[in-house]
Design a protein around this nucleic acid. Structure first.
Lengths: 159, 159
DNA sequence: GCCTGGATACTCGGATACCCCATGTCCGAGTTCGCTTGG
DNA sequence: CCAAGCGAACTCGGACATGGGGTATCCGAGTATCCAGGC
Protein backbone atom coordinates (compact mmCIF):
# COMPACT_ATOMS: atom_id res chain seq x y z
CA UNK A 1 0.00 0.00 0.00
CA UNK A 2 1.50 3.27 -1.07
CA UNK A 3 -0.10 6.67 -1.06
CA UNK A 4 -0.16 8.42 -4.43
CA UNK A 5 2.69 10.84 -4.89
CA UNK A 6 0.21 13.51 -5.95
CA UNK A 7 -0.99 13.81 -2.36
CA UNK A 8 2.28 15.36 -1.29
CA UNK A 9 2.16 17.83 -4.16
CA UNK A 10 -1.45 18.77 -3.48
CA UNK A 11 -0.74 19.42 0.20
CA UNK A 12 2.25 21.60 -0.57
CA UNK A 13 0.18 23.51 -3.10
CA UNK A 14 -2.57 24.16 -0.57
CA UNK A 15 -0.06 25.47 1.94
CA UNK A 16 1.58 27.86 -0.49
CA UNK A 17 -1.80 29.00 -1.78
CA UNK A 18 -2.33 30.20 1.77
CA UNK A 19 0.35 32.82 1.16
CA UNK A 20 -0.97 33.92 -2.22
CA UNK A 21 -3.26 36.92 -2.50
CA UNK A 22 -4.11 36.36 -6.15
CA UNK A 23 -4.87 33.36 -8.40
CA UNK A 24 -1.79 31.20 -9.03
CA UNK A 25 -1.49 29.19 -12.28
CA UNK A 26 -0.69 25.51 -12.10
CA UNK A 27 2.49 26.02 -14.12
CA UNK A 28 3.79 28.48 -11.55
CA UNK A 29 3.11 26.10 -8.66
CA UNK A 30 4.92 23.40 -10.61
CA UNK A 31 7.91 25.66 -11.20
CA UNK A 32 8.04 26.56 -7.52
CA UNK A 33 8.13 22.90 -6.50
CA UNK A 34 10.26 21.70 -9.38
CA UNK A 35 7.75 19.09 -10.55
CA UNK A 36 5.97 18.23 -13.78
CA UNK A 37 3.49 21.00 -14.58
CA UNK A 38 1.13 18.88 -16.63
CA UNK A 39 0.82 16.22 -13.98
CA UNK A 40 0.41 18.70 -11.16
CA UNK A 41 -2.45 20.18 -13.17
CA UNK A 42 -4.17 16.84 -12.86
CA UNK A 43 -3.99 16.94 -9.08
CA UNK A 44 -5.25 20.52 -9.00
CA UNK A 45 -8.19 19.47 -11.12
CA UNK A 46 -9.01 16.91 -8.44
CA UNK A 47 -8.91 19.62 -5.81
CA UNK A 48 -11.14 21.75 -7.98
CA UNK A 49 -13.67 18.95 -8.45
CA UNK A 50 -13.70 18.45 -4.70
CA UNK A 51 -14.49 22.12 -4.21
CA UNK A 52 -11.36 22.89 -2.21
CA UNK A 53 -9.97 25.36 -4.71
CA UNK A 54 -11.67 27.64 -7.19
CA UNK A 55 -10.26 27.95 -10.68
CA UNK A 56 -10.37 31.23 -12.54
CA UNK A 57 -9.64 31.23 -16.22
CA UNK A 58 -8.19 33.87 -18.48
CA UNK A 59 -4.91 35.64 -18.65
CA UNK A 60 -4.46 36.39 -14.93
CA UNK A 61 -6.19 33.18 -13.90
CA UNK A 62 -5.14 30.33 -11.66
CA UNK A 63 -6.25 28.63 -8.48
CA UNK A 64 -7.49 30.13 -5.23
CA UNK A 65 -8.55 28.45 -2.02
CA UNK A 66 -12.31 28.52 -1.67
CA UNK A 67 -12.35 28.59 2.13
CA UNK A 68 -10.25 29.85 4.96
CA UNK A 69 -7.20 27.62 5.52
CA UNK A 70 -8.54 27.00 9.02
CA UNK A 71 -11.54 25.26 7.49
CA UNK A 72 -9.64 22.94 5.14
CA UNK A 73 -8.46 19.73 6.75
CA UNK A 74 -5.61 17.60 5.51
CA UNK A 75 -8.09 14.75 5.22
CA UNK A 76 -10.12 16.68 2.67
CA UNK A 77 -7.06 17.21 0.50
CA UNK A 78 -6.05 13.56 0.75
CA UNK A 79 -9.53 12.35 -0.09
CA UNK A 80 -9.79 14.77 -2.98
CA UNK A 81 -6.73 13.19 -4.60
CA UNK A 82 -6.97 9.59 -3.43
CA UNK A 83 -10.71 9.20 -3.39
CA UNK A 84 -12.94 8.77 -0.36
CA UNK A 85 -13.15 4.99 -0.40
CA UNK A 86 -11.64 3.02 2.45
CA UNK A 87 -8.13 1.61 2.19
CA UNK A 88 -9.53 -1.86 2.87
CA UNK A 89 -12.02 -3.53 0.58
CA UNK A 90 -13.78 -6.63 1.88
CA UNK A 91 -14.24 -9.35 -0.74
CA UNK A 92 -16.63 -11.27 1.49
CA UNK A 93 -14.64 -14.45 1.11
CA UNK A 94 -16.52 -15.81 4.11
CA UNK A 95 -19.40 -16.38 1.70
CA UNK A 96 -17.28 -18.53 -0.58
CA UNK A 97 -15.95 -22.07 -0.43
CA UNK A 98 -17.40 -25.25 1.10
CA UNK A 99 -17.81 -23.73 4.57
CA UNK A 100 -19.43 -20.56 3.25
CA UNK A 101 -21.43 -18.46 5.66
CA UNK A 102 -24.99 -18.01 4.35
CA UNK A 103 -25.69 -14.50 3.06
CA UNK A 104 -28.56 -14.17 5.53
CA UNK A 105 -26.00 -14.16 8.37
CA UNK A 106 -23.81 -11.56 6.68
CA UNK A 107 -25.73 -8.39 7.38
CA UNK A 108 -22.82 -6.81 9.27
CA UNK A 109 -19.19 -6.66 8.12
CA UNK A 110 -17.04 -9.52 9.34
CA UNK A 111 -14.63 -9.15 12.26
CA UNK A 112 -11.64 -8.62 10.00
CA UNK A 113 -13.36 -5.92 7.99
CA UNK A 114 -14.51 -4.19 11.17
CA UNK A 115 -10.97 -4.12 12.51
CA UNK A 116 -9.56 -2.75 9.29
CA UNK A 117 -12.33 -0.16 9.06
CA UNK A 118 -11.62 0.98 12.60
CA UNK A 119 -7.96 1.47 11.78
CA UNK A 120 -8.92 3.35 8.65
CA UNK A 121 -11.18 5.52 10.78
CA UNK A 122 -8.31 6.31 13.17
CA UNK A 123 -6.12 7.27 10.24
CA UNK A 124 -8.73 9.62 8.86
CA UNK A 125 -9.41 11.10 12.28
CA UNK A 126 -5.74 11.97 12.66
CA UNK A 127 -5.76 13.67 9.28
CA UNK A 128 -8.96 15.53 10.08
CA UNK A 129 -7.46 17.07 13.19
CA UNK A 130 -4.89 19.03 11.19
CA UNK A 131 -5.89 21.96 9.01
CA UNK A 132 -3.98 23.58 6.20
CA UNK A 133 -3.60 26.63 8.43
CA UNK A 134 -1.96 24.39 11.03
CA UNK A 135 0.52 23.23 8.42
CA UNK A 136 1.32 26.83 7.55
CA UNK A 137 1.98 27.65 11.20
CA UNK A 138 4.22 24.58 11.53
CA UNK A 139 6.24 25.69 8.54
CA UNK A 140 6.53 29.12 10.11
CA UNK A 141 8.01 27.77 13.32
CA UNK A 142 10.21 25.20 11.60
CA UNK A 143 12.53 27.65 9.87
CA UNK A 144 14.04 31.07 10.51
CA UNK A 145 12.54 33.96 8.57
CA UNK A 146 9.10 34.30 7.05
CA UNK A 147 9.42 31.51 4.50
CA UNK A 148 5.76 31.51 3.57
CA UNK A 149 5.79 35.25 3.08
CA UNK A 150 8.80 34.95 0.79
CA UNK A 151 6.99 32.33 -1.23
CA UNK A 152 3.95 34.58 -1.46
CA UNK A 153 6.05 37.37 -2.85
CA UNK A 154 7.73 35.01 -5.31
CA UNK A 155 4.35 33.88 -6.55
CA UNK A 156 3.29 37.47 -7.22
CA UNK A 157 6.50 38.44 -8.96
CA UNK A 158 6.54 37.71 -12.70
CA UNK A 159 9.19 35.16 -13.63
CA UNK B 1 -4.41 4.05 -2.11
CA UNK B 2 -5.75 0.56 -1.90
CA UNK B 3 -4.64 -2.21 0.39
CA UNK B 4 -3.50 -5.37 -1.38
CA UNK B 5 -6.21 -8.00 -1.61
CA UNK B 6 -3.81 -10.55 -0.21
CA UNK B 7 -4.07 -8.90 3.22
CA UNK B 8 -7.65 -10.06 3.60
CA UNK B 9 -6.70 -13.60 2.62
CA UNK B 10 -3.75 -13.69 4.97
CA UNK B 11 -5.84 -12.51 7.90
CA UNK B 12 -8.54 -15.09 7.25
CA UNK B 13 -5.88 -17.78 7.01
CA UNK B 14 -4.36 -16.77 10.34
CA UNK B 15 -7.75 -16.92 12.02
CA UNK B 16 -8.59 -20.36 10.69
CA UNK B 17 -5.11 -21.62 11.51
CA UNK B 18 -6.09 -20.85 15.09
CA UNK B 19 -8.58 -23.69 14.90
CA UNK B 20 -6.20 -26.18 13.30
CA UNK B 21 -4.26 -28.64 15.41
CA UNK B 22 -2.08 -29.89 12.60
CA UNK B 23 -0.25 -28.32 9.65
CA UNK B 24 -2.59 -27.11 6.92
CA UNK B 25 -1.44 -27.04 3.28
CA UNK B 26 -1.87 -23.85 1.27
CA UNK B 27 -4.07 -25.64 -1.24
CA UNK B 28 -6.51 -26.63 1.50
CA UNK B 29 -6.72 -23.08 2.81
CA UNK B 30 -7.37 -21.90 -0.73
CA UNK B 31 -10.15 -24.45 -1.18
CA UNK B 32 -11.73 -23.42 2.10
CA UNK B 33 -11.84 -19.78 1.05
CA UNK B 34 -12.57 -20.39 -2.61
CA UNK B 35 -9.56 -18.47 -3.88
CA UNK B 36 -6.61 -19.14 -6.15
CA UNK B 37 -4.31 -21.65 -4.49
CA UNK B 38 -1.14 -20.60 -6.24
CA UNK B 39 -1.60 -16.96 -5.37
CA UNK B 40 -2.54 -17.63 -1.78
CA UNK B 41 0.71 -19.59 -1.54
CA UNK B 42 2.52 -16.37 -2.28
CA UNK B 43 0.90 -14.61 0.67
CA UNK B 44 1.66 -17.52 2.96
CA UNK B 45 5.27 -17.35 1.89
CA UNK B 46 5.28 -13.73 3.02
CA UNK B 47 3.90 -14.77 6.39
CA UNK B 48 6.58 -17.44 6.58
CA UNK B 49 9.37 -14.99 5.76
CA UNK B 50 8.03 -12.69 8.47
CA UNK B 51 8.19 -15.53 10.96
CA UNK B 52 4.48 -15.55 11.74
CA UNK B 53 3.90 -19.08 10.48
CA UNK B 54 6.16 -22.07 10.30
CA UNK B 55 6.17 -24.21 7.19
CA UNK B 56 6.64 -27.95 7.40
CA UNK B 57 7.34 -29.86 4.22
CA UNK B 58 6.59 -33.38 3.23
CA UNK B 59 3.44 -35.38 2.76
CA UNK B 60 1.56 -34.22 5.86
CA UNK B 61 3.09 -30.77 5.73
CA UNK B 62 1.55 -27.33 5.68
CA UNK B 63 1.55 -24.16 7.73
CA UNK B 64 1.31 -23.71 11.50
CA UNK B 65 1.24 -20.54 13.58
CA UNK B 66 4.57 -20.04 15.29
CA UNK B 67 3.18 -18.23 18.32
CA UNK B 68 0.05 -18.14 20.38
CA UNK B 69 -2.75 -16.26 18.57
CA UNK B 70 -2.76 -13.85 21.50
CA UNK B 71 0.74 -12.79 20.58
CA UNK B 72 0.12 -12.16 16.88
CA UNK B 73 -1.23 -8.73 16.11
CA UNK B 74 -3.17 -7.79 13.01
CA UNK B 75 -0.49 -5.21 12.31
CA UNK B 76 2.13 -7.92 12.01
CA UNK B 77 0.09 -9.76 9.43
CA UNK B 78 -0.57 -6.60 7.44
CA UNK B 79 3.08 -5.60 7.51
CA UNK B 80 4.16 -9.10 6.52
CA UNK B 81 2.11 -8.87 3.32
CA UNK B 82 2.27 -5.16 2.53
CA UNK B 83 5.74 -4.41 3.76
CA UNK B 84 6.70 -2.32 6.77
CA UNK B 85 7.31 0.98 4.98
CA UNK B 86 5.05 3.91 5.71
CA UNK B 87 2.05 4.65 3.51
CA UNK B 88 3.44 8.11 2.88
CA UNK B 89 6.78 8.69 1.22
CA UNK B 90 8.22 12.19 1.36
CA UNK B 91 9.91 13.28 -1.86
CA UNK B 92 11.46 16.32 -0.17
CA UNK B 93 10.12 18.66 -2.78
CA UNK B 94 10.86 21.49 -0.38
CA UNK B 95 14.50 21.09 -1.47
CA UNK B 96 13.64 21.62 -5.11
CA UNK B 97 12.73 24.60 -7.26
CA UNK B 98 13.81 28.24 -7.08
CA UNK B 99 12.72 28.68 -3.44
CA UNK B 100 14.38 25.47 -2.31
CA UNK B 101 15.10 25.05 1.37
CA UNK B 102 18.82 24.39 1.91
CA UNK B 103 19.58 20.78 2.91
CA UNK B 104 21.26 22.03 6.08
CA UNK B 105 17.84 23.17 7.35
CA UNK B 106 16.18 19.85 6.48
CA UNK B 107 17.35 17.66 9.31
CA UNK B 108 13.80 16.94 10.48
CA UNK B 109 10.86 15.89 8.28
CA UNK B 110 8.71 18.73 7.01
CA UNK B 111 5.37 19.60 8.57
CA UNK B 112 3.40 17.71 5.94
CA UNK B 113 5.46 14.56 6.35
CA UNK B 114 5.14 14.76 10.12
CA UNK B 115 1.36 14.99 9.86
CA UNK B 116 1.14 12.07 7.48
CA UNK B 117 3.50 10.00 9.62
CA UNK B 118 1.40 10.69 12.70
CA UNK B 119 -1.72 9.48 10.90
CA UNK B 120 0.15 6.40 9.73
CA UNK B 121 1.19 5.81 13.33
CA UNK B 122 -2.42 6.02 14.51
CA UNK B 123 -3.44 3.51 11.85
CA UNK B 124 -0.75 1.07 12.90
CA UNK B 125 -1.56 1.56 16.57
CA UNK B 126 -5.18 0.60 15.91
CA UNK B 127 -4.06 -2.53 14.09
CA UNK B 128 -1.61 -3.39 16.83
CA UNK B 129 -4.31 -3.35 19.48
CA UNK B 130 -6.13 -6.29 17.90
CA UNK B 131 -4.69 -9.79 18.01
CA UNK B 132 -5.54 -12.79 15.90
CA UNK B 133 -7.06 -14.35 19.00
CA UNK B 134 -9.33 -11.32 19.32
CA UNK B 135 -10.49 -11.86 15.76
CA UNK B 136 -11.27 -15.48 16.56
CA UNK B 137 -13.35 -14.44 19.56
CA UNK B 138 -15.21 -11.87 17.49
CA UNK B 139 -16.05 -14.52 14.91
CA UNK B 140 -17.27 -16.74 17.74
CA UNK B 141 -19.70 -14.15 19.03
CA UNK B 142 -20.81 -13.00 15.58
CA UNK B 143 -22.54 -16.22 14.57
CA UNK B 144 -24.52 -19.00 16.19
CA UNK B 145 -22.70 -22.27 16.65
CA UNK B 146 -19.00 -22.99 16.94
CA UNK B 147 -18.07 -21.88 13.45
CA UNK B 148 -14.35 -21.93 14.10
CA UNK B 149 -14.57 -25.42 15.54
CA UNK B 150 -16.44 -26.62 12.48
CA UNK B 151 -13.74 -25.16 10.27
CA UNK B 152 -11.08 -26.87 12.35
CA UNK B 153 -12.78 -30.21 11.86
CA UNK B 154 -13.17 -29.59 8.13
CA UNK B 155 -9.46 -28.82 7.87
CA UNK B 156 -8.60 -32.15 9.51
CA UNK B 157 -11.00 -34.21 7.44
CA UNK B 158 -9.54 -35.42 4.14
CA UNK B 159 -11.37 -33.99 1.16
C1' DG C 1 7.09 -59.84 13.85
C1' DC C 2 10.59 -56.13 13.28
C1' DC C 3 13.84 -53.35 10.87
C1' DT C 4 15.75 -51.28 6.76
C1' DG C 5 15.78 -49.34 2.31
C1' DG C 6 13.85 -47.12 -1.50
C1' DA C 7 10.17 -45.34 -4.29
C1' DT C 8 6.44 -42.22 -4.04
C1' DA C 9 3.54 -38.55 -3.36
C1' DC C 10 2.97 -34.50 -1.35
C1' DT C 11 4.71 -30.12 0.43
C1' DC C 12 6.94 -25.46 0.10
C1' DG C 13 9.94 -21.96 -2.39
C1' DG C 14 11.42 -19.04 -5.91
C1' DA C 15 11.41 -17.71 -10.81
C1' DT C 16 8.27 -16.46 -14.51
C1' DA C 17 4.09 -14.04 -17.54
C1' DC C 18 0.01 -10.94 -17.51
C1' DC C 19 -2.87 -6.94 -16.61
C1' DC C 20 -4.62 -2.87 -14.57
C1' DC C 21 -3.93 1.55 -12.46
C1' DA C 22 -0.86 5.39 -11.27
C1' DT C 23 2.14 8.27 -13.80
C1' DG C 24 3.09 11.45 -17.31
C1' DT C 25 1.76 14.06 -21.52
C1' DC C 26 -0.83 16.42 -24.99
C1' DC C 27 -4.14 19.45 -27.34
C1' DG C 28 -8.74 21.94 -27.51
C1' DA C 29 -12.49 25.17 -25.24
C1' DG C 30 -13.06 29.27 -22.84
C1' DT C 31 -11.97 33.65 -20.78
C1' DT C 32 -9.59 37.87 -19.76
C1' DC C 33 -6.47 41.46 -20.95
C1' DG C 34 -4.45 44.84 -23.97
C1' DC C 35 -4.17 47.24 -28.19
C1' DT C 36 -6.15 49.53 -32.07
C1' DT C 37 -9.44 52.35 -34.17
C1' DG C 38 -13.11 55.35 -34.63
C1' DG C 39 -15.98 59.01 -32.71
C1' DC D 1 -9.89 62.03 -24.56
C1' DC D 2 -13.09 58.05 -24.29
C1' DA D 3 -15.49 53.90 -25.70
C1' DA D 4 -16.06 49.99 -28.45
C1' DG D 5 -14.35 46.16 -30.93
C1' DC D 6 -11.09 42.82 -32.06
C1' DG D 7 -7.08 39.98 -31.66
C1' DA D 8 -3.94 37.50 -28.97
C1' DA D 9 -2.17 35.22 -25.13
C1' DC D 10 -2.92 32.80 -21.29
C1' DT D 11 -5.76 29.76 -18.38
C1' DC D 12 -8.14 25.39 -17.17
C1' DG D 13 -10.34 20.88 -18.51
C1' DG D 14 -10.62 16.45 -20.31
C1' DA D 15 -8.81 12.87 -23.58
C1' DC D 16 -4.63 10.17 -24.80
C1' DA D 17 0.18 7.09 -24.24
C1' DT D 18 3.35 4.63 -21.12
C1' DG D 19 5.59 1.97 -17.18
C1' DG D 20 5.73 -0.46 -12.73
C1' DG D 21 3.62 -3.13 -9.24
C1' DG D 22 0.02 -6.14 -7.88
C1' DT D 23 -2.18 -10.41 -9.65
C1' DA D 24 -1.92 -14.94 -11.13
C1' DT D 25 0.69 -19.05 -12.55
C1' DC D 26 4.09 -22.62 -13.17
C1' DC D 27 7.82 -25.90 -12.27
C1' DG D 28 11.85 -27.48 -9.44
C1' DA D 29 13.98 -28.68 -4.60
C1' DG D 30 13.18 -31.06 -0.52
C1' DT D 31 11.10 -34.14 2.88
C1' DA D 32 7.89 -37.21 5.51
C1' DT D 33 5.16 -41.18 4.51
C1' DC D 34 4.23 -45.69 2.92
C1' DC D 35 5.23 -50.15 1.25
C1' DA D 36 8.04 -54.01 0.04
C1' DG D 37 11.63 -57.02 1.12
C1' DG D 38 14.97 -59.19 4.08
C1' DC D 39 16.36 -60.86 8.70
Amino acid sequence: MKLSGGVEWALHCCVVLTAAAEPVPAARLAELHGVSGTYLAKQLQSLSRAGLVHSVQGKAGGYVLTRSPEEITVLEVVEAVEGPQSTFVCTEIRQRGPMATPPSACTAPCAIARTMFEADKAWRAALRQVSVADLGRMVGTDYEGDVLGQVGKWLSRPS
